[in-house]
Design a protein around this nucleic acid. Sequence first.
DNA 1: GGCATATGAATGAATG
DNA 2: CATTCATTCATATGCC
Lengths: 173, 173
Amino acid sequence: MDEGMSGFGLKPSRCAGGGAKCGRWNPTNEQVKVLTDLFRSGLRTPSTDQIQKISSQLSFYGKIESKNVFYWFQNHKARERQKRRRVYVENDHLNVAKQHLVEVSESGRVIETLQLFPVNSLAFSDQTEKASGDEWKENASPYTTVYTCGTEMDNHYYHHHRLPSLDLRLSFM
Amino acid sequence: MDEGMSGFGLKPSRCAGGGAKCGRWNPTNEQVKVLTDLFRSGLRTPSTDQIQKISSQLSFYGKIESKNVFYWFQNHKARERQKRRRVYVENDHLNVAKQHLVEVSESGRVIETLQLFPVNSLAFSDQTEKASGDEWKENASPYTTVYTCGTEMDNHYYHHHRLPSLDLRLSFM
DNA sequence: GGCATATGAATGAATG
DNA sequence: CATTCATTCATATGCC
């Protein structure tokens, strides 16, 4: 779910690979993949230098600018953190449902007197990870990929591009 | 028609109350009611804490996650705004009376009796955004106007960036 | 059974 | 780094 609709290989992408006019960057699957892998490898806040390089590399797969890379990392990091922050409270309904004797009288206007905020600190362990069908947590499936030129691209379309080695890891060291 | 919906009453919601399996959250009527009331009472963008609490409370009525609450407010606000904007554009200045009707909600803000934030909450009152649509953020950003599809406008994001410290030992690898 | 609408979910792009 | 806005994708549901 994280990678868009990974269920099917293609996202609608009105202008990802096709290169139509669009106001905002629409990353290619390959681009997303590389970025994700970089992120998973531990890269969180790339320097300007790194951003440039990554951007250059990714331009092989489609139109991209440095700022896109920049924003991507910003967003990804922020959202991962945000998720983490929200997920762990999820299974806390234990202590909450307890004091919930608020009746729901469906008589129109009603009783919002229900105390929405129980006051107490919701104690929890941040270990609630693999709860029931929860899904707002991504990650998992750690694997390391070494990028080799055009894994699943039709290189001949871009043969004029002469992309250097795609092993980004080496480039950054 | 907005909040009310055409065929209101009870929504079939095959997995809200019934509790079937579904990929995406389907709010219970009670959940929607509470959320809507919160919204109507002026809450537009709840903080993370508030989101968690609301979510916890709402979990009483059925399965729910924090992100659902988060998205709900995001969407609700966005769509309210979108709708209003649409109205404005639709009839430039023809049916002025009509758009006033639509617009009541914000400044009206009915602080009913509902006492939603007893003690725990920290300053939510300023969350209400600006009441009347005064100035729309037309710009306020020097770069935005200069875009011109240039590939080199990346300046704007590293003004707070320190120089690549030459020794960025990335944690990965 | 498609089409329309409503709405949950996601994410790019900013801004503070 | 967090928070927010805008736009879009995806799907549920209702109507014809």
